[in-house]
Write a protein that binds this DNA or RNA. Sequence first.
DNA 1: ACAAAAGTGTTTTTAATACACCCATGA
DNA 2: TCATGGGTGTATTAAAAACACTTTTGT
Lengths: 247, 247
Amino acid sequence: MEKVVRSINPHLSVDCVIFGFSTSQLKVLLIQRDYINEEGIPAQDYKLPGDFITTREDLDHAAARTLNELTGLQNIFLKQFAVFGKPDRISRKADLNWLKATTGTDIHRVVTTAYFALINISESDRNYALKNKASWIDVNRVPELAFDHREIMEKGLHHLQNSLRNEPIGFELLPEKFTIRKLQTLYQVILNCKLDNRNFRKKVLKAKYLVQLDEKQEGVAHKPAYFYSFDKITYDHNKKNSLGFNF
Amino acid sequence: MEKVVRSINPHLSVDCVIFGFSTSQLKVLLIQRDYINEEGIPAQDYKLPGDFITTREDLDHAAARTLNELTGLQNIFLKQFAVFGKPDRISRKADLNWLKATTGTDIHRVVTTAYFALINISESDRNYALKNKASWIDVNRVPELAFDHREIMEKGLHHLQNSLRNEPIGFELLPEKFTIRKLQTLYQVILNCKLDNRNFRKKVLKAKYLVQLDEKQEGVAHKPAYFYSFDKITYDHNKKNSLGFNF
DNA sequence: ACAAAAGTGTTTTTAATACACCCATGA
DNA sequence: TCATGGGTGTATTAAAAACACTTTTGT
């Protein structure tokens, strides 16, 4: 988080849980933070990307701005998923120190709106650059985080899992062209389960929103797989107005 | 909303979309508001129950407090579902006037966290009293609302429909003891669809969390129905860790 | 020729849907 | 005895799950 010149609203912030998928791992984008610990010694830890909102800024805009300032990306899948407003969510001395150092004012209570974002960080498609000491970290290897950011991250992960079960959002984490196996791996990793590849294939192809491309994998030491892409128009068109209930 | 003596945080509020079910209608609890309209003339409309939060109050607490002050009820199903933070969400003159009149200060921007609540208002179980000009209004007959409360209400309704499909929350709207037909009607009304009664019965009884009581309806001019109750323990116990996906 | 992942079909089981009549009660 | 909503069973269709081998490529 950089020092801001425009006037900020010190009561309200946004935090982004930004997910990416690469090398068969689900990753989250974290920012390294330098702070002064309880003993007055400089230390480092991680935090979620986030920022205060400016005085007349929409929350969604603040989240998109945060993401854009960090990655340079625009038009990213971004969705509000929760608010964190416990009065003592900022109470550790290290956190209070850090806020004072970065904002220049004493800040005690901040209500933050959490967003989750999905980014395609595939090898082939790295048309963005990270700034601000940001790095992708495997969700299973997230270190201790600042504030209540662990809680926020975990709630975001839950949200991702839930959405993945009910909406076609997995594609947001993949490049334009992907193999069905990659999609399956993505489901397996995020939902933390094993899926039968024949049944998976059958299921996703029965719906009509995956279109097979002429292109195949190249240079792989096995039978090359076809690439597919997601056809959102077809999806929106045959979206079932599911009336059933499953509780 | 009453004038508060304790110190409030004028940037943050909670609003509650409180649902109830009676006489086969889904209802929402609204508060009549007296305000001065654009022409300076006293007028009335409706708003959602809500309040500013106090300076060191948790958001969830503020929502529970709002609900309690209004109905006297405690331990009600209450869940945060969205934040509304557009900088111009309070912009109509009538709304600004009203805020000034009720709080005594000029307030322009308020970010509100919306909660939805489920209350059992069944005929038989009316162990609470409404205060503050509150009344139950059929969701299909909601008049114009203050601020962006219509948007909030509609998003809350969506949320209810979604939750109803995926979690056993319908019971929160019914008395302890209910007939299966009442439950079916509730689903039909909220999801706005028709369900086959044989299939409905089969489905809800296959799961094991409905327990038939010895008691039957009395004084009805037709074959009396058995009462059932929801067994949350059984539900939690066999909750399926659903791995499937349905998008 | 071997390793590695891609791709394919059938059977079984389970869940969803469609559909029509008799039952118990109060008026 | 009539009107009202309660309660039941079966057959059909669709979806999910289980399961093992052949194909194509690079090395």
